[in-house]
Design a protein around this nucleic acid. Structure first.
Lengths: 205, 205
DNA sequence: GACGACATACCGACTGGTTGGTATGTTCGC
DNA sequence: GCGAACATACCAACCAGTCGGTATGTCGTC
C-alpha cells in the first residue's frame, strides 16, 4: 500500500479546487495530480461528491494544526490574541491567490444547493474555525466588560475573510483582501475599546 | 425576432449560476431555461465563456437600477444613506438563498483564474457597486470630519456582503448572513461616531 | 510453513451519457 | 434577395463511474 492514497487525493484536490473550482475539477485531474489511478480513486471514494465532502473535512484537519500552532496565541491578553488572528489572516493574503484561499469556501459557493454533503462539510469547517475563536472572544469580553455574541462575531470574522478572498480573486490583487482584513481589525478594536457609548448589547440591536 | 433573446439567455443564467455555479451550468440548461435553441445561443455568444462574462456585466445592468431606486437614498444625512444601504443588504438576506446571492461573486469564485473575461467582468461589477457607495461615504466623511479611504471602505462593504452570502450558503441560514451585515452596520456607525479617539487616519495604520 | 479464503489496494480499459461547439438548413424582417 | 436570427442534426472530446483483473496482506486451519 502506498502511504495514504486517500490523503494524497484530497490534497491534490486542494490545489485544483482553489484554482478552478469544484465542478471544473475532474476526477482524472485529481488522479493525475495525486499519481493515482482512477480505480484506486473509486476504491477510496464512492463518488466525486464523496471526495469533495471528505476534502472539506480534510481541509479542516490540515489547517487546524496550522492555526493552533500560530504565534498569535502567545499574548496573555485575549484581545491581543483575537487581533493577532486577524493580523495573521491579513498577512496571509499575499502572493499567489490560489495559495491562500479557502477550499471549503470555494466549494460551498458552487455546490451548496446541489450537494448536501459538501454544504454540510464546508459548514462544519467554517463553524469549527469560528468556534476556535470563541474562547478568546469570550475572555476578551470578560476582561473588558463588553456585551456581545461571541460566536456571532467569530462567524462575522469568517465571513469577512471569505469575502476578502472573493475580492482578491476578482481584482487579482491580494492587497484588496488584506485591506478588508484591516477593516475587520479596526472593527474588533472598536468593539472592545473602553468607551462607554460603545458598550451596547448587540450589533444592530 | 423574439424580444431580446440575448437578455433572456443571460437572465436564465442568473438563476442557474446562483443555484449550481458556473461550471456545472451547461449551455443546454441555459437554452432550456430561456426557451431558446442552442443554435440561437451560439448566434449571440461565441462561447459559453463569452456568455458568462456578458452575464456578469448584465448582472450589473439589472441590479444597478434596483439599488439606484432604493429608498435608502432619501435621507439628507449621507451617513444615514450609507447605513440605509447596509440595512437594505441585511433585509435582502432572507428567504431563498439563491434569490439574494450574487451572480458575479459566485462566478468569479470558480473562474477567476481560468477565465480572464469572467474575472474582469466580475471585478467591473463589484468595483462599480463599490463606486456607487463612494460619494455618500465621502459626503459622510466631510460632514463628520472623519479621515478614511472611502473606496477602501466601500470595497470592504462589498467583501462583507459577499462573505455573508458564503456563510448563508454554508449554514443554510440567511440569518447568519444578515448577522454579518449587522456587524458591518455597527462598524460603519463606529467609524463615523463623534468620539475623538476614533478619528484615526486609516484602518490598521 | 503451506494453503485457501477473504479483504484491501490498486490498475487501466471500457461504458454510456453529456458537453461545448460546428455544420447545415429554415424562417423572418427589411 | 440578403443577412440576421433561429433550429436541428451531428461531432469529438470529456465525464463520472464500472468492470475484470492483478498484487498484496491477513487469518484460520491443517
Amino acid at each position: 500500500m502506498k502511504p495514504d492514497t486517500r490523503s494524497a487525493l484530497m490534497e491534490a484536490a486542494f490545489g485544483l479546487v482553489r484554482r478552478q473550482g469544484l465542478a471544473a475539477t475532474s476526477v482524472d485531474q485529481i488522479c493525475a495530480a495525486a499519481c493515482v489511478s482512477k480505480g484506486a480513486f473509486f476504491h477510496h471514494f464512492k463518488s466525486k461528491d464523496e471526495l469533495a465532502a471528505a476534502t472539506a473535512y480534510h481541509w479542516s484537519a490540515v489547517t487546524e494544526p496550522f492555526f493552533e500552532a500560530a504565534p498569535y496565541h502567545t499574548p496573555d491578553d485575549p484581545l491581543e490574541r483575537v487581533l493577532g488572528y486577524i493580523d495573521l489572516r491579513r498577512e496571509m493574503m499575499a502572493g499567489e491567490i490560489a495559495e491562500f484561499t479557502c477550499v471549503a469556501g470555494t466549494m460551498v459557493q458552487e455546490a451548496w444547493a446541489t450537494s448536501p454533503a459538501v454544504r454540510c462539510a464546508a459548514w462544519d469547517s467554517m463553524s469549527r474555525h469560528a468556534d476556535a475563536l470563541v474562547a478568546d472572544i469570550e475572555a476578551a469580553k470578560a476582561a473588558r466588560g463588553v456585551e456581545l455574541d461571541a460566536r456571532g462575531l467569530a462567524l462575522h470574522m469568517v465571513a469577512v475573510v471569505q469575502g476578502a478572498f472573493i475580492l482578491a480573486k476578482a481584482s487579482g490583487d491580494p492587497g484588496i483582501g488584506a485591506e478588508s482584513a484591516a477593516h475587520l481589525r479596526r472593527y474588533v478594536e472598536q468593539l472592545f475599546a473602553p468607551a462607554p457609548d460603545l458598550r451596547s448589547a448587540k450589533p444592530g440591536d
